[in-house]
Each structure stands twice: as C-alpha cells, then as structure tokens.
Amino acid sequence: MSSNPFEIAPILEGIRRWVVIESPTERPDQVNKLADVVAAGYRDLPASVERVAGRDGCGDHLVIRSSWGQEGVPGILVLSHLDTVHPMGFIERLPFKIERDSAFGPGIYDMKGGAYLAYQAFRQICADDVRPPLGITHLYVSDEEIGSPTSRSLIEAAGRQAKYVLVTEPARKGGKVVTGRKGVARFNVFIRGAPAHAGTRPEDGRSAIRELGHVIQTLEAMNDLPRGITVNVGVVRGGTRPNVIAELAYAQVDMRVPTMSHADELLPKILGISSRTEGVRVKVSGELNRPPYEKTSAGAALYAHAKKLAAELGYELLDTFSGGGSDANFTAPYTATLDGLGLEGKGAHTHYEQIYISSIEPRTRLLYRLYQTLR
C-alpha cells in the first residue's frame, strides 16, 4: 500500500486500467475480461470471490464478501456495475486522457470510476489493524445499463440481507448524492388493422398507424410534470408502403414515476388502452421494471450519517432526486440505501464523458469512512 492510501495518482492509474477494457453490455466476453481484472484485485485481500455465470447474452456477476462480519448479521452491500453503454471501438473516439482536472474515457463517470473507488476504500479497510463492525459485500453486475434483467434477483436477495446499501453511481452536479429516483416502466404497443389499397379501396382498410396516433395522444396526455410523471413514446414503426393502408404498427414507451402510488394509478391505465376503431386490435404489454426509490426514514438517517462524515472531511454533502433509475431502486424500498457515491464529473453516455480528478480523494475517503463507521 502507498503511504497515503488516498493518493490520487495510483487510484487514477487503477481507474485507467478498468476504463481501457471496453465493456459494452452486449459484449459479455469484454465484460468478463474486465471481471477477470476486478476479481484479481481481491486475491490478496481477506475476501472471497464468487463468480455468477452470465446468461441471456449478459456477462458474469461478481460477489465479493469480506472475511469478517458475523454469519446472519446484516452488513454493508456495495452495488456497482461493470457494463457501459458505449459500443466497442468507442475508445478510439474517446481515449483515456487527462486534461487539467478531467480524466476522460468510455464509462469512466458511469461508473467505472466510482466502482474503483469502492474497491480502493475496501483495500484500505483490509490494511487497517482494526476491522470495521459490519461485514462488506461488493456486488459488481454486468447488465445495469439495460435494466439489470439477469442481476435483479441477485441484487434484491443481497439487499434484503444487508443493513445498508451503498451505490457507486456517479455523483450529481456539485458532488450531490442521490436519495431518491423515479421508478421506470417500459411498454410495447402492438396494433393490427386491415390492409387495403390506399387509392382504390381505402374503405376496406383499417389503419394501424391511424390507431397508433390515437394511442400516442392518449399516452402523451398522461404527462404531468408538476407531479413528476413523464410518459414518452420513444420508438414507432408501422406500415409497408405509402399506397397501402397499414396493417401493423408498433411503439415502445417509457414511463417515469416518483412514487408507487403514481405507478399503481398509471400502470392499469396504460395496460388497459384499447382500440377506438372497429376492426383494429390494440395490445399493450409491459411492467414496472424499476420500482421508485423513495426516501425512507432509514435512508434519510444513512444520508445524515454520510453528510456528517463529509463535514468531518471538510466539505458539505448535499443530496438530490434523480429522474433516472439505477440498481438502488431495487433495494431502497426495504433497506437503507444511498446512491450517487461515485465520482464527480459530467457527460455520462456521451463522447466527452469525464471525471473530475479533484473529487477522487474526498469521495474515496467518504466511502472508507462509511465502511469504518456504519454499525
């Protein structure tokens, strides 16, 4: 270990090693290559490494458990993801580089930087003479960027066994942590009408596209920004040729809601949308794939503790609510959860994604102090 375990240069070099291994969700071979490197980092530490084989086109998940912590006593769960949204080869466009206070690279902000900080803080805890009161489990998943379809059950089971959940998603502007997120629902709309020649026999047709227009208007009318509800028809397809009345049409829909009561109100409405036109069938399928992350009293107490630790480290830790979902949504309903503990930066999912180097030391120290003091 360095004489200063929070020294920036070696931590940044560790982040670089993870960033240069591109790991798009849809390339399990690449995600697993990164998982090999991550797992190797724990080999000399008092921890066990369990590798959960990937399935359904996704990479493996890693479950790291500290050797301390009493059997059956809830401990700390740290959630991170190894997958990124950037396609293979994007590192040619966005190579790892340092400019002033920024370090750039695919997935460096969302969230390889934050995941590495949690590992670094764990290394230092292992080097200390005194073990912290609670055991630590670090779960690295391979599919968060597509909604965690193969890791959700693992996250939920680990979350129910934990007393606290710390999530290394990137910090928000000004270093804010996240204490609430909207729930996310996804829907598919399938419409079947009847084809006909648009010029000679239009009366024989039943346009699926026209019906889709009605459905879109119904969905758009559900937007309620003052209540934080958004419904977005993001993908539409339909028809074959301009002179044929469309038999088929299709849409993909995203809904975000801040509370479960909003979800309970809107889900049946969307799933219950029916055709306005005789001879046209409308079928809507979908579900809430991430429940809302609402601030509970336990979650508020965890944030208050982190805020106090940050003040001792010399800075103010503010919190915020996010419209995006994360794996925190799966644990927050039943376990004290704090999200956004990763690095400060900007440009998640873009061609200029970056972290702020000046945030490395304070954010690593905060994670380390959380490991040390939560009980």
Rank of each mutant, 00 (worst) to 15 (best):
P95T: 10
G239D: 01
G72V: 15
L374I: 10
A162Q: 06
V167H: 03
Y119W: 14
I15W: 10
V38F: 09
C58V: 11
T150V: 15
I270D: 07
L225I: 02
Q354M: 08
K163E: 12
G228P: 02
Y334K: 07
I191R: 02
W18R: 08
E353Y: 09
L309I: 15
K33R: 14
S148E: 12
E344Q: 12
Y250A: 11
N32V: 00
K163I: 05
L341E: 13
D264I: 01
I245M: 05
A53V: 08
E220N: 15
I15P: 02
A171S: 15
P291I: 04
L309W: 12
S285L: 09
I146T: 01
P268D: 04
S102H: 14
D36V: 07
I270T: 07
Q252T: 07
L77C: 04
L317V: 11
T277M: 10
G113W: 00
G279A: 08
N232L: 01
V78L: 02
D339S: 03
S359E: 07
H349K: 05
N188A: 12
S66F: 04
T230K: 07
P202T: 11
V141Q: 08
R172W: 00
L94K: 08
G279R: 12
A328D: 08
T320W: 09
I357Y: 05
R192T: 14
V141C: 06
G314V: 11
N243G: 05
G279V: 10
L134F: 02
L367M: 03
M260Q: 15
I155M: 11
R181N: 05
I76W: 07
L267V: 15
M255W: 02
V37A: 15
G286N: 08
D129S: 14
Y140Q: 00
L225T: 04
E220D: 15
L338M: 12
N32R: 00
G213W: 08
Y140R: 00
S322N: 07
V52T: 13
P268E: 04
G323P: 00
V233E: 07
I229W: 14
A328F: 09
A304F: 06
L79I: 11
N32W: 01
I8W: 01
E22N: 14
E247C: 03
S322G: 02
S151A: 10
K308T: 12
Q217K: 09
H262M: 04
R365Y: 04
P362N: 06
L338Y: 13
A40M: 03
G135A: 13
